[in-house]
Amino acid sequence: MDTELGFSFMLSMRVATIALLVVTVPGLALAWLQARRRYPGKVLVDGLVLLPLVLPPTVVGYFLVVLFGRRGFLGPSLESLLGLSVIFTPTAAVLASAIVALPLLVKTAQPAIENVPVELEQVASSLGLSPVALFFRVTLPAAWRGILAALVLAFARALGEFGATLMFAGHIPGKTNTMPLEIFAAYQSGNDSLALTYVVVLTGLSLLVVTVAARMSPGTSNR
């Protein structure tokens, strides 16, 4: 049982970490785009980014199955071209977690980037900085607290992902059984003490992560 718990814990951590790595670059790019640029269809993009946050995760899972399933839109071509089958694999768990974590990342990082005075970026670009250099040398150092908080919250959300993961990755012991799925399985089979163990571990971990994020948030610092 201990090894099962250990496996599940490590799998959850791995899935959440990779999901975070997957969403960091597109998430921060989206946050920057929404904070700094005006373009046609911006409101629509805003809505699409928020969608995974407001939809039931099962709906997100359903979309993923429709896209990547064996008879989905992309699934067959991925399988024939690259020999990849995503559904019911740890990769599916990563994708599901990444998509539900994205809105939290974008919506927390966006105001942090908006708060960076636009004059600083103008001065920097007049001093010859490229857009990428500008992000790393001005925006990031000026907004790092908010961006770190966004990453931490996204990680916590990825760690706790259940609905979309169950639909898309399934509950396969030894393969896709992350902690949230294990809680449900243990509870269903009447193993209340095992469920409680997972609940305590997951609650403690999330509390730690969210406390760290709260301390990092701009406005709550002791400056």
Binding site: Q122, V123, A124, S125, G128
Partner: peptide, 18 residues
């Protein structure tokens, strides 16, 4: 802007705080 070699001194928020 970055290729113009034009210096800029704004009224507010002119310095990098970090």
């Amino acid at each position: 802007a970055r290729d113009r070699r034009i210096g800029l001194v704004p009224q507010h928020n002119s310095l990098f705080p970090f």
